[in-house]
């Protein structure tokens, strides 16, 4: 296998992120104050403390989404900056929660509460940072960034669908062939990610071939495997071989394009040196 990396920008699940444990630590005293207020029959304090607890819980919830977004952004080679700045929103909510908890629930003087609120926003910004703002979209030529991201995303979704479909296949030979083709498809996606200008040339591959395999695997899955005749199976195997050859050719073509670009640039530099 070549050294090519897989194109695998799966979305990070906000729930599994460990970052943000400090915020959980802050929930503990509020939780205690809710329980103590309840047992002490201070119902108004119980209500207010519960609101403060929920506000801080909201901060954690928003922060986790923000952290997940940031991780996806860092992982992806081509992406746009997050549309909703969740980390920034949670910093402001932290300010509001701090003010509420100190001034309304805790009876701290307003000016002190406001200062604490401001410091909490500053602390959040310093400790966790705010959301990334810059789009990671360079060297696109005349192609719209949305087209590139959308096409890559669609291809990736379709590949994920095919992978899910073939996971239940019991025909190992066919499964291996499809997996091999998908591996090549992954490599092609990486090549396009590295040189997005090629997306126009590779569009047919991305739309027609991957879509075709997705259709074949999904209709294959809708049938009982014992109902598939030997003849159909052979045709399928042949088809997958053809697909693999096509994918290989596509990759070669993309490589050749890069080679051509290099040649053009060398010639150009030569001309400039001579001139």
């Amino acid at each position: 296998m070549s050294k090519a990396k897989r194109y695998n920008p799966t979305k990070t699940d906000a729930q599994i992120i460990k970052k943000g444990s400090l915020l959980y630590f802050f929930l503990f005293p509020l939780f205690l104050s809710v329980v103590i207020a309840l047992f002490g029959k201070h119902y108004s304090a119980f209500l207010i403390n519960s609101v403060a607890f929920l506000l801080f819980f909201g901060v954690i919830f928003l922060s986790k989404i923000g952290f997940a977004q940031e991780m996806d952004y860092k992982k992806a080679k081509l992406t746009k900056a997050p549309k909703v700045p969740y980390k920034q929103l949670s910093a402001y909510l932290l300010g509001v929660s701090t003010l509420f908890s100190a001034y309304i629930a805790g009876g701290v003087a307003l000016i002190d509460s406001l200062i604490m609120s401001g410091i909490s926003i500053l602390g959040y910004w310093l400790y966790y940072g705010f959301d990334p703002k810059k789009d990671k979209l360079e060297n696109f030529g005349d192609i719209s960034a949305d087209v590139v991201l959308e096409t890559l995303g669609e291809a990736q979704d379709k590949i994920a669908d095919i992978k899910r479909d073939i996971s239940t296949m019991s025909d190992t030979l066919l499964k291996d062939k499809i997996e091999m083709a998908l591996e090549r498809a992954d490599i092609i996606l990486v090549a396009i990610t590295e040189k997005p200008q090629d997306i126009r040339k590779a569009r047919k591959f991305l739309i027609v071939y991957i879509d075709g395999i997705a259709n074949v695997t999904s209709s294959y899955n809708s049938l009982d495997e014992s109902d598939i005749s030997q003849d159909t199976r052979n045709r399928l195997l042949e088809l997958m071989e053809d697909v693999e050859i096509k994918f290989k050719a596509e990759l070669e073509r993309l490589k050749a394009n890069s080679q051509f670009d290099l040649d053009v640039n060398i010639d150009l530099l030569k001309e400039q040196i001579r001139g």
């Binding site: 005293p29 304090a45 908890s101 805790g106 604490m116 959040y124």
Partner: peptide, 30 residues
């Protein structure tokens, strides 16, 4: 400012401000 200082300052700020705010309701009950 280097990132470690940012983290340390951020941590202290959070601990001071949010820490005081979340313990205030608890203290108010006693």
């Amino acid at each position: 400012m280097s990132s470690i200082y940012k983290k340390v300052f951020g941590f202290i700020f959070l601990l001071f401000s949010v820490g005081s705010a979340v313990t205030a309701p608890l203290l108010a009950l006693f």
